[in-house]
């Protein structure tokens, strides 16, 4: 059961990612990215982190996707198809990276040890463990994350708003 789920989710994630980078229309790409993110959330759940799976669903597959769709809707995106790319160097670099990664993967697959996942206790899976960790050991990074989110919100509003004011005057 676990194996079947893993392979289904893995295939979905990879094909979603592949569809994302090959589509011309960004809206279709966003749909493919959603498939990929939902599958990755499922993989998080398989890795006995249900709380993070829900967070991944809410943030990456929910909030960020909605934000992307809204901004793509605001911005005019239809001009890509009409024009040719100036340099084709990106394709070459991309395929070189792919070949390198295939070699590295082949080398890593040939090297054991292949160990099944150790059994987890009840405590490892529970969100309480993560919560206690966040307010004890990772207290300062946790607080700083709050500051980061706040400053990002302020920065986004400031950037977008100032641009509008400049255009009006």
């Amino acid at each position: 059961m676990y194996q079947i789920l893993f392979y289904i989710l893995a295939v979905l994630a990879v094909s979603g990612a592949f569809g994302m980078i090959t589509r011309k229309n960004p809206i279709v790409s966003v749909a493919f990215l959603t498939i990929s993110m939902v599958s990755i959330a499922g993989l998080f759940a398989l890795l006995s982190a249900p709380f993070l799976a829900v967070l991944q669903l809410m943030i990456s597959a929910g909030a960020v996707i909605v934000l992307f769709v809204f901004v793509i809707m605001i911005v005019d995106y239809r001009r890509e198809e009409s024009r040719r790319r100036v340099i084709q160097f990106g394709r070459v670099l991309g395929s070189a990276a792919v070949i390198y990664l295939v070699i590295v993967l082949a080398l890593s697959i040939l090297k054991p040890p292949f160990i099944a996942a150790p059994l987890t206790g009840e405590a490892f899976e529970m969100p309480e463990t993560l919560g206690r960790l966040l307010i004890s050991e990772f207290m300062i990074p946790f607080e700083l994350t709050g500051v980061l989110l706040l400053s990002a919100a302020v920065a986004v509003i400031l950037m977008v708003k100032r641009g509008e004011g400049e255009r009006d005057t």
């Binding site: 998080f44 982190a49 993070l52 991944q56 992307f68 463990t129 990074p141 990002a152």
Partner: peptide
């Protein structure tokens, strides 16, 4: 898990900015 939690916060911030 805590690290992944922070990564998710960074994902959200990165997308917004």
């Amino acid at each position: 898990k805590a690290l992944v939690f922070f990564v998710m916060a960074v994902i959200a911030v990165e997308a917004a900015i």
